Simulated scan of single mutants.
Amino acid sequence: MAQAFAVAVNMSAAELIVWLDTDESRRVGWKGADASLRESVGHASGRRIAEILAKSGRDLTEADYALMRKATGFIRRHTAQAPANMLTSRWRYSLMNWGHDPLKRFLTGDREER
């Protein structure tokens, strides 16, 4: 599980924290069936993912592993649904809330996923 999570989540804790502080990050995501939640599920998960990234493996809890599985599944499902405009799409921003920037390797020239 930890290996699949490490492949799926390609943003560092610091990158994710900076991203989550943007207006774009706060505007996307599911906020309940009636849109009444203050924070989207992905944004809240992103905060927890940043905490997980900062932990050592031996400090991970069952709740951490559950979120790691959820994030990995979300990222896998949604990366298969790429829109025509990836750069400024809600699709990309939503994935970034979960710790995955689908354009990271293209924008940074980074050939290796984190």
Score class of each variant (00 low, 15 high):
residue 5 F to I: 06
residue 6 A to C: 09
residue 7 V to W: 08
residue 7 V to L: 10
residue 7 V to G: 06
residue 7 V to Y: 12
residue 11 M to H: 08
residue 11 M to P: 15
residue 11 M to T: 06
residue 11 M to V: 08
residue 14 A to H: 02
residue 14 A to W: 00
residue 14 A to G: 09
residue 15 E to G: 12
residue 15 E to Q: 12
residue 17 I to P: 07
residue 18 V to F: 11
residue 19 W to P: 15
residue 19 W to D: 11
residue 19 W to M: 12
residue 20 L to I: 04
residue 21 D to W: 00
residue 21 D to L: 00
residue 22 T to W: 09
residue 22 T to R: 12
residue 23 D to R: 08
residue 23 D to F: 02
residue 24 E to M: 07
residue 25 S to H: 05
residue 25 S to I: 01
residue 27 R to D: 10
residue 27 R to Q: 13
residue 27 R to P: 02
residue 28 V to H: 07
residue 28 V to S: 14
residue 29 G to Q: 04
residue 29 G to I: 00
residue 29 G to P: 08
residue 31 K to I: 07
residue 31 K to M: 14
residue 31 K to D: 04
residue 31 K to G: 14
residue 32 G to W: 10
residue 33 A to C: 05
residue 33 A to W: 02
residue 33 A to F: 03
residue 34 D to F: 02
residue 34 D to W: 01
residue 35 A to D: 14
residue 35 A to Y: 00
residue 35 A to S: 12
residue 36 S to R: 10
residue 37 L to S: 13
residue 38 R to F: 09
residue 38 R to Q: 10
residue 39 E to D: 11
residue 39 E to N: 04
residue 40 S to V: 01
residue 42 G to E: 11
residue 42 G to W: 01
residue 43 H to W: 10
residue 43 H to I: 01
residue 44 A to S: 12
residue 44 A to I: 02
residue 45 S to Q: 08
residue 47 R to L: 10
residue 47 R to P: 05
residue 48 R to L: 09
residue 49 I to M: 06
residue 50 A to K: 03
residue 50 A to H: 04
residue 50 A to T: 05
residue 52 I to K: 06
residue 52 I to Q: 13
residue 52 I to T: 13
residue 52 I to H: 10
residue 54 A to Q: 08
residue 55 K to A: 14
residue 55 K to I: 05
residue 55 K to Q: 14
residue 56 S to G: 13
residue 56 S to Y: 00
residue 58 R to L: 10
residue 58 R to H: 13
residue 59 D to Y: 07
residue 60 L to D: 02
residue 61 T to E: 01
residue 61 T to S: 15
residue 61 T to K: 06
residue 62 E to F: 02
residue 62 E to P: 06
residue 63 A to Y: 02
residue 63 A to I: 00
residue 63 A to E: 05
residue 64 D to E: 03
residue 65 Y to V: 13
residue 65 Y to Q: 15
residue 65 Y to S: 15
residue 66 A to I: 01
residue 67 L to F: 04
residue 68 M to I: 06
residue 68 M to Q: 11
residue 70 K to M: 08
residue 71 A to C: 11
residue 74 F to T: 14
residue 77 R to H: 08
residue 77 R to N: 06
residue 77 R to S: 14
residue 78 H to M: 10
residue 78 H to C: 07
residue 79 T to Y: 03
residue 80 A to F: 01
residue 82 A to H: 01
residue 82 A to P: 07
residue 83 P to L: 03
residue 86 M to E: 09
residue 86 M to D: 02
residue 86 M to C: 08
residue 86 M to N: 03
residue 87 L to E: 07
residue 87 L to P: 01
residue 87 L to V: 13
residue 88 T to G: 14
residue 89 S to I: 01
residue 90 R to T: 09
residue 90 R to G: 15
residue 90 R to C: 05
residue 91 W to T: 04
residue 92 R to F: 11
residue 94 S to Y: 03
residue 95 L to C: 13
residue 96 M to H: 07
residue 97 N to W: 01
residue 97 N to D: 02
residue 97 N to E: 03
residue 99 G to S: 06
residue 99 G to H: 05
residue 101 D to S: 10
residue 101 D to P: 09
residue 101 D to V: 03
residue 101 D to H: 07
residue 102 P to C: 12
residue 103 L to P: 13
residue 104 K to V: 02
residue 104 K to Y: 07
residue 104 K to H: 09
residue 104 K to E: 05
residue 105 R to H: 08
residue 106 F to G: 09
residue 106 F to Q: 12
residue 106 F to A: 14
residue 106 F to C: 08
residue 107 L to E: 14
residue 110 D to S: 15
residue 111 R to Q: 11
residue 112 E to N: 10
residue 112 E to L: 12
residue 114 R to A: 15
